[in-house]
Write a protein that binds this DNA or RNA. Structure first.
Ligand SMILES: [Mn+2]
Ligand SMILES: [Mn+2]
Ligand SMILES: [Zn+2]
Ligand SMILES: [Zn+2]
Lengths: 138, 138
DNA sequence: CAACCTAATTAGAATCATTCTAATTGGCAA
DNA sequence: TTGCCAATTAGAATGATTCTAATTAGGTTG
């Protein structure tokens, strides 16, 4: 499963003309089935022990490439570093104000059917309509 | 109207024991009825010509104080600097991926009744459940 | 299986957003 | 009016991200 997801993501990179490098394989494999929405820093620290040389810039570059080919999403939903999400089907998020951790919630139209994590103290529900504004579409 | 909102916000600061300074009056007056969700930088640049001395740190400090007394909200919904919102009743936001600009949307339960700004190209609708997670509540 | 072209990687500097620091100023309660 | 202590200030420090310029290495071609 981890392998299948990683292979699919690498395929998306390849199909878009990106080269498959050892660093990209490592990063994609690390991210592929991780539901924790890791930061670039976290991925870097997990990979550093194994991969001999791995630049921090490469982590950012690879994540940007993955975003371009729609193999992952960058989530900036609160202060703190951007988090990266390999889950590409539409879904919602539970976000902790304190530590920034994020948990997936199924996409459903029923307002309060959502099963929040055990012990989570809900403060607000926010809807964000994302896209590109008229002036930016020139 | 602008005066009434500003006075209310200053009252909230005063009631919480914060001192009313010339800088705080200026910042609050600038933010009070601004629907544009300005950044700290934008507020600073608007105020600088008038206020003789106004430190950038003071803008951040004052915005943090306003947040503490629930007179404004800090919104970090995409990359780029945090935006500040003096509108404290629950509402949603339309966010441009490109420039980060934000527009208010009325809080309504009907999913697609929302009147998006003219020419806005909608890409996704996202729901965020905000609060504090169990480990963070110790 | 070379050789080449060019994209990708690298370390470190640069930039941007935000917070901290330590010295000075000034609200406001007594 | 005085004095305490919070607020302000400029600038340094920090954290996140992007840029730069030199080196390395995919992968295509001969
Ligand atoms: Mn997710
Ligand atoms: Mn708003
Ligand atoms: Zn938490
Ligand atoms: Zn825009």
């Amino acid at each position: 499963m981890a392998i299948r997801t990683a292979e699919r993501m690498l395929g998306q990179l390849r199909d878009a003309g990106f080269k498959i490098t050892a660093q990209r394989v490592a990063i994609v494999t690390e991210l592929a089935d991780d539901p924790s929405h890791p930061t670039a820093q976290e991925l870097y620290e997990r990979l550093r022990p194994n991969e001999a040389a791995m630049s921090f810039a490469t982590v950012y570059n690879t994540l940007a490439a993955l975003e371009q080919v729609h193999a992952c999403t960058a989530l900036a939903l609160s202060q703190g570093p951007t988090r990266f999400d390999p889950k590409m089907d539409p879904h919602h998020h539970v976000v902790c104000d304190q530590c920034g951790k994020m948990v997936d919630l199924p996409y459903s139209e029923s307002p309060e059917a959502a099963a929040l994590p055990e012990g989570f103290a809900l403060r607000s529900i926010e809807k964000i309509y994302r896209g590109v504004c008229a002036p930016c579409r020139t």
